[in-house]
Simulated assay, not measured.
Amino acid sequence: MRITVIDGQGGGMGRVIIEKMRKEFREQVSILALGTNALATSAMLKAGANEGATGENAIVYNSKDSDIVIGSLSIIMANSMLGELTPKMAEAIMDSKARKLLIPIYRGNIDIIGLQTEPLPHLVDTLIVEMKKYLGGIKHV
């Protein structure tokens, strides 16, 4: 099972996600950290990702081989993250056959009606519950 976490800017959200995934799943899953920049990738690697890569080509290339892609809602929106997330990246993520588990955090001019505003740690806890459902007790890497 290959789980890809995508983040940009300082990698703070990706770091929190990977730390909680490691705590919950230990080494049962393989985590690939993909950052839009080196700082984000580094933060996610320090949090416990197995591998990491940076930039547009890394995200485009690796998105297609993932079983699950995790990130904020902005990873499917071209030019988000202050322009770090390119249209090619957004398209590759959306075209991936991977299950996408997206956290509804976006600092742009978009409001998603019907969502409750929750702090990041609560949203990541909900993400872990969804991953457990999706993984269905898988015990291998």
Results as ranks from 00 to 15, higher is better:
1 M>R: 07
3 I>W: 10
4 T>C: 13
5 V>D: 08
6 I>C: 09
7 D>N: 00
8 G>M: 02
8 G>Q: 02
15 R>M: 14
17 I>A: 05
18 I>R: 04
24 E>S: 12
25 F>I: 02
31 I>G: 02
34 L>M: 06
35 G>V: 07
39 L>R: 08
45 L>Q: 11
52 G>S: 09
53 A>I: 04
57 N>A: 14
60 V>F: 11
64 K>M: 09
66 S>K: 03
70 I>L: 08
71 G>T: 01
72 S>T: 14
72 S>C: 15
76 I>P: 00
76 I>S: 08
77 M>I: 14
81 M>P: 00
83 G>R: 05
85 L>E: 01
85 L>H: 02
85 L>K: 01
86 T>A: 09
88 K>G: 06
89 M>V: 06
92 A>I: 07
95 D>G: 11
95 D>A: 15
95 D>H: 12
95 D>P: 00
97 K>E: 15
98 A>F: 05
102 L>E: 05
106 Y>E: 12
106 Y>I: 03
107 R>L: 13
109 N>M: 10
109 N>Y: 10
117 T>W: 12
118 E>C: 12
119 P>N: 14
120 L>P: 10
121 P>F: 03
124 V>T: 08
124 V>Q: 03
131 M>R: 06
131 M>K: 04
135 L>E: 06
136 G>R: 09
136 G>A: 15
137 G>H: 09
138 I>A: 13
140 H>D: 12
